[in-house]
């Protein structure tokens, strides 16, 4: 899993830098387009992912002490944060699409929509992984001596969070 996480970080890293350096060629366009984004939605989404990560930390802590039930509850809470993130993101995207914006509109929107969608798919994958872990935890499949599965799922979820922590200021805030 860690090989996979590193590969993912590499891909996102390359895209972040591509954004930063593509921006140097057309700062005005990037700044102007950035102002059209819903910054508040991005802010709430950051809070959601951070909280999701925190809940996953609590879930790992619970199972470490052998509490399957509490672990399951925190995992569900984390997934709820993820689901809320996805809903908000969809609202944000549909607003842009209704405004007639696509990946071909300009380079900024190519990155905003492309990277956003790519990250979106990672949240979906993270939810699928957490869902599988939750199901197993709910059935009492992990114990204090054996919870590697929870830790692996948690690591992936934190990676998705970490990427967003860089993505949010980069695309929504910095100008």
């Amino acid at each position: 899993m860690w090989c996979f996480i590193l590969a993912e970080l590499l891909v996102f890293g390359v895209f972040f830098l591509a954004y930063a350096f593509a921006r140097t060629h057309d700062v005005e366009l990037f700044n102007a387009s950035q102002l059209e984004l819903d910054r508040t939605s991005g802010f709430i989404n950051t809070m959601l992912l951070i909280s999701g990560s925190y809940f996953v930390v609590l879930a790992v802590d619970r199972i470490r002490h052998g509490h399957s039930r509490a672990c399951t509850r925190w995992l569900i809470a984390a997934m709820a944060c993820g689901a809320a993130f996805l809903v908000l993101k969809l609202v944000e995207f549909s607003g842009k699409i209704e405004a007639g914006i696509s990946m071909s509109t300009n380079t900024f929107y190519m990155f905003y929509l492309g990277l956003g969608f790519f990250h979106f798919m990672h949240v979906v994958l993270g939810m699928v992984i957490l869902g599988a872990v939750t199901l197993k935890a709910w059935r009492g499949g992990y114990r204090a001596s054996d919870y590697a599965g929870v830790e692996t799922g948690a690591a992936y979820w934190h990676m998705v969070d970490l990427v967003w922590i860089v993505l949010f200021p980069l695309i929504y805030l910095l100008n």
Binding site: L10, V11, V14, A18, M103, S104, F111, G114
Partner: peptide, 17 residues
């Protein structure tokens, strides 16, 4: 569309991995 120049470049740059 032009955005493929970005996506194609980045992902195929990772194909050697």
């Amino acid at each position: 569309p032009e955005y493929w120049q970005w996506w194609g470049s980045v992902f195929s740059a990772l194909e050697p991995i």
